[in-house]
Design a protein around this nucleic acid. Sequence first.
DNA 1: CGTCATTGTGCAACAAGTTGCACAATGACG
DNA 2: CGTCATTGTGCAACTTGTTGCACAATGACG
Lengths: 192, 192
Amino acid sequence: MSLPHAILTALLEKPSSGLELTRRFDRSIGYFWPSTHQQIYRELGKLEQAGRIRALPSSQPARGRKKEYEVLPAGRDELAAWVALAEDPRPVRDPLLLRMRAAAVVGAPGLVGELRRHLALHREQLAEYEEIERRDFPPERTADEDRLRHLVLRGGIDLETFWTGWLTRAIGELDGTGAGTGGGRDGTGAVP
Amino acid sequence: MSLPHAILTALLEKPSSGLELTRRFDRSIGYFWPSTHQQIYRELGKLEQAGRIRALPSSQPARGRKKEYEVLPAGRDELAAWVALAEDPRPVRDPLLLRMRAAAVVGAPGLVGELRRHLALHREQLAEYEEIERRDFPPERTADEDRLRHLVLRGGIDLETFWTGWLTRAIGELDGTGAGTGGGRDGTGAVP
DNA sequence: CGTCATTGTGCAACAAGTTGCACAATGACG
DNA sequence: CGTCATTGTGCAACTTGTTGCACAATGACG
């Protein structure tokens, strides 16, 4: 759905081979649209077929041979058209919230521990984003074209901030009261 | 992945037919694990086959005939086991952030309008959650088993609060400066 | 009585993402 | 020179979610 557009964006920023793309995904676009190398190669194939990108002539086409792609005008147009679309936000789909809901029914002895684990992970991610912000967006220079990229990063930061805040609160609330064993009325040994 | 567990949770809260489940999904569990009736029927079939739920005997098995399901002990055990699992948070996958990133490269005349539209949608969702909170979790009574459900709802509220906050900020920042048409010159804009 | 909207159940084809593995080139090292 | 780890490319099978439609019962209405 959006993967081809993610790839076009990345290739416009800089022509790359499949593996380079994969690497760059891991540390920028992949933060909000993750993808494996398998997916990327498959999509590169389709995009080439469709005439939106092409392999740079320098690289001979052989398996196991490095192959760099660049975006063709058709690809740029396609991307611009996609950006201009109105598209509703994805519905949320979060297993942790679901598990908490289930825990309210069947009980969950270890739930608080799991919340703590998630808190640690989100704190890590938050720190990573903040590091990037320090590095790439120092307070003084505000080149106009970087503003969008900075906003995207702020999105990531704010999102992780939400998670750490909510998890902290949840842990605090469940921890004090011996809750977390929830309303599991029969299958659950009640825990002190 | 999680859909069967969402269904088990819902059925434990109250035995239901496929359509009833669908309705209930639309206004509670579906907020963080949406699902269509087709998916639900398919999953009900699998769960029944696997011996985790069964149709209540009252209903004769015929197409177009109402059929209520209840959870069997095996289903409850399965759900409890799933709740106890450690499972990492889903990676974020958000088209809007992706489109902003693309807009930084190809330009985006209408982007601010789209952000406003999303802001309105998130405000609406937030209002809906807050209404539910007022209705189902009035400040005085804090039954212990409801605490988890309330926390889940708080998660939804905090998440929508994050979105409205971020979108407001983004709109403010892009609107004043005539940005949003971004760096759409051509394939330049190299970023390390 | 017919037919028509509504409620309820369900199959089938497709699209997107995940997992596992295979194959090709390259350079390091004994 | 062989073989081994690393880098790079890619296919295939599978799982999950989406879309479109079909079929069955029921009650309302002319």
